[in-house]
Simulated assay, not measured.
Amino acid sequence: MASRPVGLAVAGARPSVLGEGLEDITLTDGGDDRPSPAVRPVWEQWHQGPPTEPNLWAPYDARGRAAWLDLSTRAWRVPVPRPDHSGGEHHLDGRFVTDVPGLHCAIAEALLGPGRYFGRGWDAFQDCLCGGFGVAPPFALVWHDSEVARRALAGVVEDPEGRLSYFEEIVRLLERRGVTVVLRQPPC
């Protein structure tokens, strides 16, 4: 699955009841770098390994989706970098893109498959587009149900001048990097 360090602190020590020369040590939780109970369902889902089906991240709220992205960064550690592939057409299922973590889950899934990593925020996404993560421009991205993300992310602004939404900035960035973005809506 993934590993997380667990910080423990020694709260006390005393001679052991098990015999001379042994010590009983009392440990307390000394760390705060573990998943919150709110994201436990995500960890339980990943317990058997990275997902193999699309959209398993979709039922979670933004916090759960962020935990999903956290696991995706840890689960795919490869000792030797994989070569990037370019070209082709990738299809993004936009039905569940209702927040920023969901956007990054959906893009990674469209480009690399379920449970994969391709950025978890603006800066990381830009880095991934430079290569070294399995796919690099140029390629085509057909974004189905793109209006869901356009509406949901309308109030999320990364643009320092406050003119563009996160959705618009992502589309612009993709296009600047050589990605042909095709925005599609469901048939009426």
Rank of each mutant, 00 (worst) to 15 (best):
A13T: 14
A13I: 07
P15Q: 15
P15C: 08
V17Y: 09
G21M: 01
G21W: 00
L22A: 12
E23T: 13
E23P: 05
D24E: 14
D24F: 00
T26A: 15
L27T: 05
L27H: 06
L27N: 04
L27Y: 11
T28H: 14
D33G: 10
R34T: 08
P37H: 11
V39Q: 06
R40P: 02
R40A: 11
W43C: 10
E44W: 02
E44Y: 01
H47N: 12
P51K: 03
E53H: 15
N55S: 14
W57P: 00
A58G: 03
D61H: 04
A62G: 10
R65S: 04
A66P: 05
A67I: 04
L69G: 09
L69P: 09
D70F: 11
S72Y: 12
S72W: 08
S72D: 08
T73A: 12
W76G: 13
R77A: 10
V78M: 14
P79V: 07
R82E: 13
P83D: 13
P83M: 03
H85V: 12
S86I: 06
G88T: 02
G88R: 02
H91K: 05
L92I: 00
D93Y: 09
D93F: 06
D93L: 10
R95L: 02
R95S: 09
F96M: 10
V97N: 15
D99V: 00
V100R: 07
L103T: 04
A106E: 09
A106N: 03
A106M: 06
A106H: 02
I107D: 10
E109W: 10
A110M: 03
A110C: 02
P114I: 08
P114N: 03
G115D: 05
G115S: 05
R116Y: 01
Y117C: 03
Y117Q: 01
F118K: 03
G119F: 02
R120L: 05
G121F: 10
W122S: 12
D123W: 05
A124I: 07
Q126C: 14
Q126R: 14
Q126W: 13
C128A: 01
C128W: 01
L129Q: 06
L129F: 00
C130W: 08
G131C: 04
G131F: 03
F133I: 04
G134M: 05
V135T: 02
V135Y: 01
A136I: 11
P138W: 10
A140I: 07
A140F: 06
L141H: 10
L141A: 06
H144A: 01
H144T: 03
H144G: 01
S146G: 09
S146C: 11
V148E: 15
V148K: 14
R151A: 12
